[in-house]
Design a protein around this nucleic acid. Structure first.
Lengths: 298, 298
DNA sequence: TGCCAGTAATAGAGTTGAGCTATGGATCTC
DNA sequence: GAGATCCATAGCTCAACTCTATTACTGGCA
């Protein structure tokens, strides 16, 4: 006969109450049941745990030595059960997300904040990394979900949602662009532009869009960081083209932005997860919440 | 349904083999049994532990987090079982003894040594204390057994063995006492004696014995420590009376000793234990061994 | 595209064993 | 010495665990 947790619990109860009858009561079993449980445990361990007669129940020396060991064991186990129940009830949990920097600084904080209002026990681990790393982190399951652009190859990745992140034209308040009915490639080709560095994904999209339309941009200067491009627009050097999700635009009160009315001036934005892997309840819930937020804003 | 150790072991096996079939084999159960065990565990914890289809079995994130916890738990438990089995088989164990200093320095080390030859895994905790403390330590179960003199009051103490520690007359090699057929009170009353300090239990016995015989001792000087009394005998000041169990006598090669042929010149020596308390197997075995040794020597 | 091999899930039957009631036996109290 | 109290034992009942047989699903291969 193998030893069981019930036997260990019986041992703890008997050690605490120093009475089989009271121990049985506290465990809601009959007294003979407890007697047998203790005997089975003693048989499994091959040592006597209690010196007992009809008048007293006392731990033997070995029983005293085993008591704290078993106490810790049962305590740890109970803690695990409580823990998993909390996780299941979404009262507690860690959600790990990898996202492109633009997203991580833009829409994601908003989504996290509103999610935390409903689930105060949630903790987030957020990694802002480039597209290829987002994919890698999702693949290795180091994160629960990812928000990335570009193409997703491989069957081990599920695209939960795909929205388009439209490029915006950014201009100083009062600029003529603000009054146009639509912003098209024609407009863009006529104004001086502050473009992003050719190594950036934003520039790639812009170049591609101009190319496909057979037009040529009028670059006045280049910037590596969006914040720099914004500053140049503010300084009156020209206009710039940035993703609508970029937080940097709103950070500058004297500037305005409008979406560009052309599909090529947008990039795909994908919420991805690993195929066939279930996530902790809170992560699953946040995935829904994030998709909802993106659809709303998109 | 409560969670059980078998379920936890099933979880560990499945996590290790990443296959329900192989896990079932390693636990010597049928595959459906293991499937059910895992499902029950998941129900008890309210979380999914494996992402499984007919092609692969992988831990979920929560499963991965729980794995080391359960591993440690089962490991600890198995260690406890191994431990208690070793104790039961007397391959390991601690024996705690309290004894009068004379015993602790005399017969006890011999008994321990011969016992260790048969049981190499034994460890001893030895306390050399006065009679009243021996009793106290046995009573409080701080030691498994005690060796003490004097009276033992109270029903909570069992006298396992009682032998008499006979007083010896200690004399220089070649002294006339060595040639007498018997050493009696008459002999003692005629020779100059080095007596122990009145505060010692040895002196108490000697005084009592002389008193009951209506004789008077011829004290030439007093010593607090037996070693001092021995030194005085060696110096020729007189003879002394010490317990036969005293190691100090044998430590001096030029001296000899003989038992005194009178019951009053002896003290009771008791091996005691707490009534109704069982001891670890090795302690119980040593108790037997010690009693055997004492009977042999007495 | 469909078949085959391999694996987990399900269903139903049988058996083990855990718990309960009733009772016995021992010990302390009055 | 009688009664009360408490642990141990015995026999019964039933729940749950495990097994066999089978189904359902997935991925690889022709």
């Amino acid at each position: 006969m193998d030893l069981s947790l019930r036997q260990i619990r019986a041992f703890l109860a008997a050690a605490q109450t120093r009475s089989f009858t009271r121990a049985a009561e506290s465990l809601h079993v009959a007294q003979p049941t407890l007697t047998v449980q203790i005997r089975r445990l003693e048989e499994a361990l091959a040592v006597k745990l209690f010196d007992r007669n009809t008048r007293s129940v006392e731990l033997t020396r070995i029983g005293r030595e085993l008591l704290p060991v078993f106490q810790r064991m049962v305590h740890d186990l109970d803690a695990v059960v409580v823990d998993t129940h909390e996780i299941a009830a979404m009262r507690r949990g860690v959600v790990r997300v990898a996202a492109l920097p633009t997203i991580a600084a833009g829409v994601l904080p908003d989504a996290i904040q509103s999610f935390r209002e409903r689930h105060p026990g949630v903790t987030f681990v957020l990694k802002d990394v480039i597209a290829s790393r987002v994919l890698g982190l999702v693949r290795s399951e180091e994160v629960d979900l990812g928000v990335t652009g570009g193409e997703v190859k491989g069957q081990d990745i599920d695209t939960v949602l795909e929205v388009r992140d439209r490029m915006h034209i950014v201009f100083p308040q009062g600029h003529a662009v603000g009054d146009l009915p639509r912003v098209t490639i024609e407009t863009l080709a006529e104004v001086p532009l502050v473009l992003m560095d050719p190594a950036t994904s934003v520039r790639e999209i812009v170049d591609e869009a101009f190319l496909s339309a057979g037009r040529i941009a009028k670059p006045v200067c280049e910037a590596t960081y969006m914040m720099t491009a914004i500053a140049m627009v503010r300084a009156g050097l020209g206009l710039t083209i940035l993703p609508g999700s970029a937080r940097e635009i709103a950070a500058e009160p004297t500037l305005r932005s409008r979406p560009i009315d052309m599909l090529a001036f947008s990039r795909p934005l994908r919420v991805i997860r690993k195929t066939g892997r279930s996530l902790p309840p809170l992560a699953e819930a946040f995935l829904d919440h994030l998709c909802g937020t993106l659809v709303e804003k998109g």
